[in-house]
Design a protein around this nucleic acid. Structure first.
Length: 277
DNA sequence: TTCCAGGACCCTG
DNA sequence: CAGGGTCATGGA
């Protein structure tokens, strides 16, 4: 299937090769990625995103939602750009969109991200898929379902080079199989959703907020990582011994209902060295 | 060799 | 509750 989305400002590279998602790569003039059991090719032409679903049955509406196009982007930009630092970040990193990923895939990949870096997280995610996932095309595999992960031994999962996170992945998958934890997140308020997610092994508040922001579309949630903390301290002047919840509250109040969206502009701009921290 | 990377967990005081 | 050490792995 081929789809076409009107999105003049959309920068595929800044969106897909970023810190929010770990399953895309640039191949020549386009981007190739695995989303669920689909292999998707994307490229930009003029004001449009051209999408080819190489394998799988992802519908146009589902892909549009995944790409973060079911939001009023102009309203979001207008809202968050009231903040001077965010405004600067948007100028330095325009065309970035927050995706709307599958909660389970977000969870698994962000468990892999802890105390690691983005290239390593990408490698871990790819290893998990290639070793234990379902083969979709000759070279692309889906992330393994919880049934598969839960059935692995620690020795087996270590082949994916996930390190000490291996047992967290196995135990989290097992808990998901024996509960409806993820499916109940939707109905919970933010604080309760975080409290629920952190019950999963390998999931702390930061990963929980990543899951809420990138997997559940809660654009207000601000994952407080070392970058955001550095930004809050050096640009916004907060005390660097503030606790996680206090920093999150500060960021949400300061940046508004799209604070999470704003924070990722800050994150990417900072990581690109554009914020002079 | 040492340090760090989008942290989480465990043990002490 | 706060403060420390520890945890696999790869790259600088």
């Amino acid at each position: 299937m081929t789809y076409r989305f009107y999105a003049p400002k959309y920068d595929l590279e800044r969106t897909l090769i970023s810190g929010q998602v770990f399953r895309w790569k640039k191949v020549g003039d386009h981007f190739e990625g695995v989303v669920g059991n689909n292999v998707i090719f994307l490229k930009k032409r003029d004001d449009f995103i051209l999408a080819d679903v190489i394998a799988g049955s992802m519908s146009e509406s589902v892909l549009k939602n995944y790409l973060g196009l079911n939001v009023d982007y102009e309203e979001i930009l207008e809202s968050i750009s009231e903040d001077e630092f965010v405004n600067k970040a948007i100028e330095e990193y325009e065309g970035y969109y927050v995706l709307n990923q599958d909660p389970y895939e977000t969870l698994i990949t962000f468990i892999c991200s802890t105390n690691s870096n983005i290239p390593n997280t990408r490698a871990k995610s790819e290893n998990l898929a290639n070793l234990f996932g379902k083969q979709i095309t000759d070279k692309y595999f889906s992330l393994p379902e919880p049934e598969i992960l839960a059935g692995l031994s620690e020795g087996e999962i270590m082949k994916a080079k996930v390190g000490y996170r291996g047992k967290y992945l196995i135990e989290t998958a097992d808990m998901l199989l024996n509960s409806n934890l993820l499916s109940k997140i939707e109905e919970k308020k933010d604080t309760e959703a975080v409290n629920s997610l952190v019950q999963l092994p390998g999931v702390g508040k930061k990963v929980a907020d990543c899951v809420l922001l990138f997997g559940f579309g809660r654009l207000n949630r601000v994952p407080i990582d070392v970058w955001i903390k550095r930004i809050l301290v050096n640009l916004y002047g907060i005390d660097d011994n503030m606790k996680y919840d206090e920093m999150e509250d500060f960021a949400e109040k300061r940046l508004g209902k799209y604070a999470g969206y704003a924070s990722h502009f800050l994150f990417e701009a900072a990581r690109a060295g554009k914020l002079s921290l």
